[in-house]
Design a binder for these strands. Sequence first.
DNA 1: TCAATAGGGTACGGATTAGTTTCTTATCGA
DNA 2: TCGATAAGAAACTAATCCGTACCCTATTGA
Lengths: 203, 203
Amino acid sequence: MSTNAPAVQGADQASHPSRRRRGPALQEAIFSAVFDQINEIGYARLTMDRIAAAAGTSKAVLYRRWESRESLVLDALRESLPTVPEPPAGQSLRADLLHVLEAVRSAFTVTKGTTFHLVAAEAGGDCRALADERVFVPAHRVILGVLGRATGRGEISAELVTDLIAGIGPALLRSQAIDGPVPDPATVTAIVDEILLPLLTAR
Amino acid sequence: MSTNAPAVQGADQASHPSRRRRGPALQEAIFSAVFDQINEIGYARLTMDRIAAAAGTSKAVLYRRWESRESLVLDALRESLPTVPEPPAGQSLRADLLHVLEAVRSAFTVTKGTTFHLVAAEAGGDCRALADERVFVPAHRVILGVLGRATGRGEISAELVTDLIAGIGPALLRSQAIDGPVPDPATVTAIVDEILLPLLTAR
DNA sequence: TCAATAGGGTACGGATTAGTTTCTTATCGA
DNA sequence: TCGATAAGAAACTAATCCGTACCCTATTGA
């Protein structure tokens, strides 16, 4: 079959033309290729041929592991997304917020800024469900918990513990990820220090 | 050619099987079909066949107007997105913020919540550029202007006139549009009254 | 050393979709 | 009433992509 996958100049392949990768190295190359191709050509034009070529492997290798493009993309996301841990006990409100929003930020950086494209591309998508289940819903819950405990310590008013306010940090990170490049740690700090703390601790 | 476009039960077509539409009515049906199909099957599976079927028309009609799926989708977006007007002079900070954020909100509702999918689906996309040019960049500029004038009136501190703070409202609306359904006017009011005004006017 | 495993390349058939062409006939305005 | 225009249907060709099969050989561990 003639394929119009673009010529590949993968450094690994070029510098080790007969090298074959196995296990984690191969999978890493494949997942990286998925994210790179989405950035380069968009999800709509993503094909198994292009992913294989970008990874310096073959379609047979992909089909040996995944039954479809969709399941590969879902696995790439699943293996990359962070979990959102509860912050350690005894931290300040500021440290807590930084902690959870840093996890949200990494949800964008680990996929080279394509998390949002993956989530948007298919209707009723498994990627969206996964991102929500793994990152956004837990983050929301953790932030509400952080705000609840701050209320308990008398640091903030109880009426500030709302879904809307809890949504500010992730929304700003998402927004930046949409506008790309992916948000950096300074962004998280700015969100906490310039928006959340002033809003929460205003009298 | 055999086509696997789904069977169509468009009410118009069904109730007027020989009725043909022309001009604005036909274009409206086509654009509506674009947004409906994206919600139903996702941008990745959007085809000219499906759009034609959903609109109760034919591919020939589409190709007579647009050279490709991408140009049709871009036109659908272009014809739907609002502009972001300057708010009238002499309004309060609150009224100004409500005014501009309502325009941003409508950028999501006019495309039945698909603005974000359109913007995400193609790399380096024209849809993204259009949405930025028509809505997001002007909204940002207008909000900075609104904040600047509030500073001039002594209502808020000058150091609150930042890109980050100006980004809050659109980011929250975007976030809601991603999570769907599309944001409603109460959301805009809540953003202004529960977040922006408290943040801006805190002492 | 050697056999099992699987990576990588390539060819293939089939399905899907793009895009074009032809035809009939509804629509509309002169 | 009538002719020009174009909507809608359907058939067609071509290109793309999916998914599979086969082959050679690198890799790995017994």
